[in-house]
Design a protein around this nucleic acid. Structure first.
Lengths: 346, 346
DNA sequence: ATGAAAGCGCTAACAA
DNA sequence: TTGTTAGCGCTTTCAT
């Protein structure tokens, strides 16, 4: 007969003995909605308190097939938009009784596999992919194991996966209309990571908007969503004689746009918006700082988060329900980094 | 006899049957360091792959008494320092095979209790408290249940709890020396949350340093570590005639210091550092932006994170080992927001 | 409303 | 090295 394992901690049996009731009574007291008398509840709670008992949710999950764990995967927090998003996601999930396991993309090749593996092994009830990296294989892996996935801030072509995203296409168009109406004629674009849907849609919409205004893109560079890479990109576009240089630029994220403004003003001695108008995307906290006053597209974080959580819970509660996509509108926030067209009202 | 529960997912028995081996053989294949033959490993892995099997770590934890889960609690991510810290903590823990459950302080009264409860119910192997809120009761609750705790970026008087922090006292002194040597005579301080050890130590050190230079604090205001509250604080100190206004200010965090610079320059029309020298604490990414160029105390995030993780793992692996405190040195980063004394070299 | 008993998926002791 | 077996701490039937 196997040797008894060293006992660790307090379990429901200990509490039951202490209270002089059955073990299942203890379980019921800690199960919301179970049928227990007042007196039973009191006795058990008292014993539990005396022993410092906390029910083991990991054990419970074995039976209920619910861990109340949600996995969140994300590339990194360096972009100011993501800390807000993550914090609110975690809080919102908690409002519904879920706890969050956090994962960041890692450098090595099979980082994604590792993460999915952890999700599956911990039997998370659902996954939110805020990651910017490609994720089709993840989604398949999770959904095949019955774990619903919601893409956060990116839409995949595949309609079989739930996703929430702002209307990047319309956002791009709005900026184009705005800059064109402002009288700009040499309008440039600085891209984010080119393998990401948000980037593609923002650019596509922007080009469409320019075309509608009878313009086309004057120039383009790539910043890959990082400040480090956006600086050289900005120099490339703007370190030129006045008449060869863009008079306006749409930058695919605020995080990059602030970096661009720094290069323009402090390295190249250009005035914003007198020499160049700059428009960003996201409306991160620093965009509104007096030092920048960046005109940008506001993403309603709360709305995106709420939609994402709702979409996920929907599929957790009714696994048979079809995945849905939610698209949230963006709005242009007028500040001082871009010339405002006369009579502009959106 | 209880009715059999609906079977969900693939378990080790299914894999065992499929591979024609015992269930424990399957378990061993997925247990690092267990003794299995090559052929056995191959057969099992093949069956597992065929069935899409992933071992259930929650079930495993019942036996091993190890969840490989670490709880991280934190107030919020709005302060730029914390996203960096959290990201690196999560990554570092993962390097050692641990996964992270994230918790944010909530508004209601028993938020802390709720969090501790969740930590205990999920049987986390350890807890990192990066939270700025008071936490003595948390620590007791966790440690009483045998869950080791490390305080991140704050030191408690109690030497019975592991903690990592920069040398806030010496940091404060350094800034005082620096500003005094720069010829400033009306030196002010803007505090963070007054119930927090980092704040207290920074201020104490600062006052000590001023005293050593034959000065005393000219004035003081409280910003509570938020941008919203630091703006009025800055106005209070600086919206005065030139000779009644501080000629230098030490702000307890960069996050606030950037807000102070904005108020000084854009609301009050003061020049930094010509009219006022500003020094911060943390060295967040935006502090080095050309728009601010904030002179500040650099916190070596990687070092703090590594120390915190090491302290935690130490206590997880040898529960009997004594808690330790680690203190990491800070260094002054000279930029342009404060006048640099002639011949200053640290 | 309560208790007895079965079993969730796994690890680890033991025997072979 | 492998299989057998006993639980880990819990939830949930079922019977009372």
């Amino acid at each position: 007969m196997p040797q008894r394992l060293l006992k660790i901690g307090v379990n429901s049996i200990d509490v039951a003995k202490h209270a002089g009731v059955s073990q299942s009574a203890v379980s019921r007291v800690f199960t919301p909605g179970a049928s227990v008398s007042e007196s039973m509840r009191d006795r058990v709670m008292q014993a539990a308190a005396a022993l410092g008992y906390q029910p083991n949710r990991l054990a419970g999950s074995l039976i209920t097939h619910r861990s109340n764990l949600i996995g969140i995967a994300i590339a990194f927090l360096a972009n100011d938009f993501y800390p807000m998003a993550v914090e609110r996601l975690v809080r919102r999930l908690r409002d519904f009784g879920y706890h969050t396991m956090m994962f960041f993309d890692r450098d090595h090749a099979n980082s994604a596999d590792e993460t999915v593996e952890a999700f599956l092994q911990y039997r998370v009830d659902g996954v939110i992919l805020a990651s910017v990296t490609l994720s089709s294989s993840w989604v398949t892996a999770c959904e095949r194991s019955g774990v619903p996935v919601v893409l956060f801030n990116r839409i995949q072509d595949d309609p079989h996966v739930s996703a929430v995203s702002v209307d990047n296409l319309e956002g791009g168009r709005t900026v184009a209309r705005f800059l064109a109406a402002g009288g700009h004629r040499r309008i440039a674009y600085i891209a984010g990571r080119e393998d990401v849907s948000t980037q593609r849609d923002r650019e596509t919409g922007f080009r469409q908007g320019l075309a509608a205004a009878g313009l086309s893109l004057f120039d383009r560079a790539v910043g890959n969503y990082t400040v480090e890479e956006v600086r050289p990109a900005a120099r490339l576009l703007f370190d030129r004689p006045a008449d060869e240089r863009p008079d306006a630029v749409f930058v695919a994220s605020d995080h990059m746009a602030l970096g661009v403004m720094d290069v323009l003003r402090f390295e190249l001695g250009l005035r914003v918006p007198a020499d160049v108008s700059v428009v960003g995307f996201d409306d991160v906290p620093h965009a509104s700082a007096p030092s920048y006053r960046l005109t940008t597209l506001h993403q309603p974080v709360d709305r995106i988060v709420n939609d994402a959580v709702q979409l996920l819970l929907e599929r957790i509660e009714r696994p048979a329900s079809a995945p849905r996509q939610a698209r949230v509108p963006v709005s242009l926030v007028l500040r001082e980094s871009a010339r405002i067209p006369h009579g502009w009202c959106g």
